Computed example of a mutant assay.
Amino acid sequence: MFADVAAFMKGLMLGSVSCVLMSFLAGGLYKTTPQLLYTNHISHRHIQLPSNVELKGGPHLTPPRLLCLVLTKPKNIRQWGATRTTWAPHCDKTIFYSPENAKVFESVVIPEGANSWSMLRSALLHAHDHDIDNFEWFVVCDDSTFVVVENLKYFALGKDPEVPYFLGRVQREEELDFVIASAGMLMSRGTLRRFKIASDDPKICSNSASAIGFWLRSQSPSKLLASCLKNMKVHAQNAEDSSGRSLFNDATVQDLVKRTMSEQGQSSSKGNVIEGCCSDLAITFGNVPANQMHVLMFGVYRLRSFGHTYNDLLEFHPVPTAKND
């Protein structure tokens, strides 16, 4: 009998210790910010916003010139219209690319654009051939991505555009880091130059006209681009703020808030949902419907909180085409 009691007490003590240990470990896990849980914060390469120390003084504070490349289709006329009238005018120049000609909007026609990889590849080559010397940075996105251009320029500020930067929201699959297309992809002039070299050599960067065209059509354009650039020693880097929160988002604000509430559970009632959801200096939101683009435009550029001031060390004046803020 005493042996049974002793065994019972021993089991009870071991169970209690295990419970305490598991609670401790769980507590440590949930102290991680929701954004890091969501971003699958792997040990990939990452780069952050410039610090205040980096911003103080120096001739490097000239706002970088940005070319925005938007991939669209004639059937997405509402998305094209929303993009054209909201954030696109804030770019120094915006070019729309479409697989076929459309009378309702101006675009560069890419006949082989039905293949999404050919569409992306041709758009990048067109930008290189026509504007490589006119801009330092190039952002590529589809017509459902909303870009806060001023935050993007702030992120690029002080970075040498001849250095090969390939930035966005990074995901890893089978040892390949690639940038999620729906969140937008940012590359420096140095990267675009290297992509041009890679695209001219099928051993480095295959194209849809090759013998493995069928295989290419089944692959993600994001992965194919990352693979090409990796062969040129250019690696995808996750763009983050000082807290490690991603600046490029592949979802709407509404979806990001929902995800954060789901990850935080009951702690979401403590008022830290927005802080955990998104960076204050977020650059993009993805999969945004046309009507929500106008909502974002109002929130980003029009809505003001009376009496609230910001201590930014510098400001970017809108480009002449940005008459909607």
Rank of each mutant, 00 (worst) to 15 (best):
E112M: 13
R194D: 04
T62I: 10
A6Q: 11
Y165G: 08
K159R: 14
F248K: 05
T62D: 06
M297W: 14
H235S: 08
S222Q: 03
H317Q: 10
Q292P: 00
K153S: 03
T39L: 04
E174M: 06
G307A: 04
F24E: 01
S243C: 10
I95F: 08
L314V: 05
N231K: 13
V163T: 15
N249D: 01
H46F: 13
S182P: 01
T252H: 02
E173H: 04
N40G: 09
H60K: 13
K323Y: 00
A6G: 02
G28N: 10
G271D: 02
K270C: 01
G81R: 14
L225P: 01
P74M: 03
W215Q: 15
L49E: 04
G307H: 08
H90K: 06
S122P: 03
V70G: 04
H46E: 05
R84K: 15
W117R: 03
E263C: 00
K230S: 10
S305M: 11
N40M: 08
D142V: 05
S279K: 02
L69C: 07
Q35F: 12
M261L: 05
L256N: 01
R65N: 12
S23V: 10
S242Q: 11
L157P: 03
E136H: 08
A209F: 05
S243Q: 13
T83H: 00
A26W: 09
L224M: 13
K233N: 15
N272D: 06
E174A: 10
I47N: 06
A251K: 12
V288F: 05
Q266W: 13
T85H: 11
V253Y: 15
Q254S: 12
H60L: 07
G158S: 05
E150M: 02
F214V: 14
L303E: 09
V104I: 12
S98W: 04
F248Y: 06
K153G: 05
G244K: 03
G184K: 02
K223H: 04
L216I: 15
R45M: 08
